[in-house]
Amino acid sequence: MALRTWRPALLIRRLSYIAGILYLVACSGISEPAEHHQPVEFERTLTEVRSGFDYQAAETQALQQDDFANPGLLWVDSGRTLWASECTACHGEIDAMAGIARRYPKFDEAAARVINLNQRIELCRTQQAILPALPYEAEERLALTVALTHLDQGQPFAVDITGKNAAAFHRGREYFYTRRGQMNLACHHCHEVNAGKRLRGEALSQGQPTGYPTYRLQWQTLGSLHRRLRFCNAALRAAPFDFGAQEYVDLELFLAWRAANLPLEAPAVRR
């Protein structure tokens, strides 16, 4: 088609098509920053939330509820002692920190990303108290984490999935529903579709995080949710992420939202 034969009407029609497309793009908000979105109501796929406590044997439940003999309480004692020597200068008494643990994971300005309580404590330890760095699963980090989480026993999670936490929440939710590993299963398959049914002689729980850090009889010690998630990955023959990996923290945020009104029960005792 030679340039000489272009007609003004054709040009106007083409320009209006382009304008229309641009208008639709503008209306869909693709170009807008995420924070200005209204929070979307996510469908809760569990009709009833049940704690991992419900899937334990009576003796295990009794041990968790024993105010003296619950082995996890040894770490709570440790954490409180550590707090008294390392943290009171800035934060005062540990009991004044009630209500803090249930809000994690959340976006942290200093870390510039969503982090969990264990990681926030480590930031404080290394950058404020100027103590030597410790690995994620170190006794001191677990002790401080469980000591703070124990203050919120009986309260549900109070996590925010909007604003700066939204992207992490989306990623965590995506993780939960994504198949992985040689067994090609998503968290959803065991912990929602088949929750309550038995796998290798044990009942599948809903995978609720309300008991963490938890004393697992299998580990014979207190451990973090990340340790449990690594085990879940390995069980599917998927390569586990490192302790403290962002994938696990994002998933933690989603799991905390998914737990709805389930009360925190750290330190729990699980098989």
Binding site: A57, E59, P71, E202, L217, Q218, Q220, R271
Partner: peptide, 12 residues
């Protein structure tokens, strides 16, 4: 002893 122990690591 309990009649059945779910996990042998810690039996009352």
């Amino acid at each position: 002893l309990p009649a059945l122990a779910e996990n042998g690591n810690s039996v009352a």
